[in-house]
Design a protein around this nucleic acid. Structure first.
Lengths: 185, 185
DNA sequence: AATCCGTCTGACCGATCGGTCAGGTGCTGA
DNA sequence: TCAGCACCTGACCGATCGGTCAGACGGATT
């Protein structure tokens, strides 16, 4: 029962994770079958389900880092209002979106479905607080609409421009945020 | 063989179309089965497939009006450049997106898949020309990025704010467009 | 009365999905 | 040498998908 021994090549777990990330980013979550992932790894579908309890568990492990950063941003947002909230939300979300472009890409179009699932319900609440911050906590519908355009547009753009360098994408997005949002009155 | 006779209640066809539009807008194209549509209408799945050759034909008939308007916008765009192209594309696309909100909603997240399908390939080319127009035909990556954020953001927002009155949504979106796009140099 | 036709349906098909299970294989520590 | 364990697999399961098909039903034409 000695600890510290070098385990013999249990790299299959991470190989499955990497292959799943690649396939999800291309064909989406629903559009990718466990067979597809197994084929990409070169193992059987049963092996995928040996390493992960089910398909959703695979997705959760893939999204965990991004969700952690999102929750950190949400925490930093608490108690802020107006222009300050706009700036923190803008810079924070652009950073997050650029960094986790692949994770966003794999949620393409499956957001509505996935957010309903019990494992992701609190993400929806965070999203709503993020929208409010983008709008500078204004009640004007036009401010909320602008906030939604910017938020959804950034997410979609990061998923689309997957190969552009970070330091080219980030400043362009920040510039759009600064221009597009309604200034607080 | 006399013409002009009042046909006896062949309203099933349009009932199926309406029910499909409602279901697609909620659960998406892939996420809605022919069973779901049949249940919503109150007929059998076989009846749905009696009135429409297949599922894709149903989608095409649903999207036809929106695609016609999109092609008209594309035609108006031909030969324009710079600020003129930006303005025509901006106003034209906002009008289109607001008017056909439900059609956009039913494509939620299925754009990447559906655009590959032979029936919709030319839509992809129109989209690229629309992006170029939004960017004022500038080569700067930042202009193209801003264009994509605005285009995708508007589409997603129209799908989300499905119940807001047109004359509240449209001016708010136009304002975002005017603010967010890079001015042509 | 016989026929035709538009409309509609239940039963059925092959494919694919996520997931289960019993068992095989090879290393490890006793 | 042998038991135990991590890892892996083929075969299989029930459910659901889009789509097909032979036939039932009823009103209009002849």
């Amino acid at each position: 029962m000695l600890e510290g021994m070098a385990r013999a090549v249990p790299e299959t777990h991470s190989e499955i994770l990497a292959a799943a990330a690649r396939r999800f980013a291309v064909t989406g979550y629903k559009g990718t079958s466990l067979q597809d992932i197994a084929r990409a790894v070169g193992c059987s579908k049963a092996t995928v389900l040996y390493h992960f309890a089910n398909k959703e568990a695979l997705l959760c492990e893939l999204m965990a880092p991004a969700i952690t950063v999102l929750e950190a941003l949400d925490a930093r947002l608490a108690g802020t209002t107006g222009a300050a909230a706009q700036q923190i939300a803008g810079e924070g979300f652009v950073d997050l979106a650029v960094r986790f472009r692949r994770e966003i890409a794999l949620l393409r179009g499956e957001f509505p479905d996935l957010l309903q699932q019990p494992a992701f319900t609190h993400i929806q609440q965070i999203s709503e607080r993020l929208i409010a911050a983008f709008a500078g906590h204004s009640d004007r519908p036009s401010a909320r609409i602008a906030a939604f355009v910017v938020l959804a547009g950034i997410a979609e753009t990061c998923a689309e421009f997957i190969d552009i360098p970070d330091d080219e994408l980030r400043p362009a997005l920040l510039a759009v945020v600064r221009r597009a949002l309604e200034p607080v009155t």
